[in-house]
Design a protein around this nucleic acid. Structure first.
Lengths: 154, 154
DNA sequence: CCTTTATAGTTTCATATGAAACCATTTGCA
DNA sequence: TGCAAATGGTTTCATATGAAACTATAAAGG
């Protein structure tokens, strides 16, 4: 005999469940983009995010905590990404003048090289993705994401 | 001196980069929903997905491969989730009559209990999420996701 | 001052994960 | 038939990850 179904206990249809659909889409896209840099540049997702943020905030002397905030990564992940990036000579890490707990981070020439190689590819992937939508859909998507993210920002 | 910027090599603005925004949103939502079942029911995300799929396809005698297809998980993850679920008495696993390689999977009473407890909570979370959007935005979101997923389905 | 409390960042430990190797069974085909 | 290739699923191994403990430094309170 089939399982009795009471109102809201009906089996959950994953394929139309919003969190599930978002998860599938996100993972597919992330994996696609990661292919562009993971093997070719020996770079993890977290390391790429750190590079992107340091590039964006060039010369501002961000600390590890600043990077964590802007990448939505936890401090452990940032610490590990930085350890690898510094070891690879892609990031320069010095100590903050007034506060010796803080680090001051900057991309090295090698770090910029990596950034300059990957950024165009990432943008290209985004374009390909958005090419599936028409202009109106793109506008709605932007607006909807902003609304959803606003509320989620904990 | 700041880094020279050539056309498409401008630093990537993560906060407006679609894949990044999707990733943040997805992770926030997933974590929120996971809180409803992870500790309370000692259930991992992968285990919950397996339960949801088995509930949805009650009586169809799905195999592990079938589950993998419908959950977008790889077979290793499914195998491990099933091992735990069977050990916990939440899933019954027998062997397919005509093909002794295949397993035949079904929820036990305990498995249904877990499903019936979680499904309403998951739906509630989805409702909360969608409550931030108006009816028009919800329709666009549904349509846009469908388009993006269609193309991504590798 | 000097002690408590908070902050920046790293390390440890236990668990999660994926790729590749593996075992068992079935299918394709000479 | 009988053997090579494919399929369903599990295990192994190496790496990734998060929570909590830890170190070092700075700020706050008495």
């Amino acid at each position: 005999m089939p399982h009795p179904v009471a109102a809201d206990r009906a089996p959950l249809a994953l394929e139309s469940f919003l969190p599930y659909r978002l998860s599938i889409l996100t993972n597919t896209i992330s994996q696609l983009i990661a292919e562009d840099y993971q093997r070719p540049h020996d770079l993890s997702v977290t390391e790429w995010r750190v590079i992107a943020v340091l590039a964006r905030h060039d010369g501002e002397g961000l600390s590890a905590t600043d990077v964590a905030l802007r990448t939505a990564m936890d401090k452990v992940a940032v610490s590990r990404a930085l350890a690898r990036l510094v070891a690879a000579g892609r990031v320069r890490r010095s100590t903050h003048d007034g506060d010796r707990r803080r680090s001051v981070l900057d991309l090295t020439a090698a770090g910029w090289e990596v950034h300059d190689a990957i950024a165009p590819l990432a943008r290209q992937r985004e374009r390909e993705l958005l090419a599936r939508l028409d202009a109106e859909e793109r506008q709605w998507l932007d607006r909807i994401l902003a609304k959803l993210l606003e509320g989620s920002a904990s």
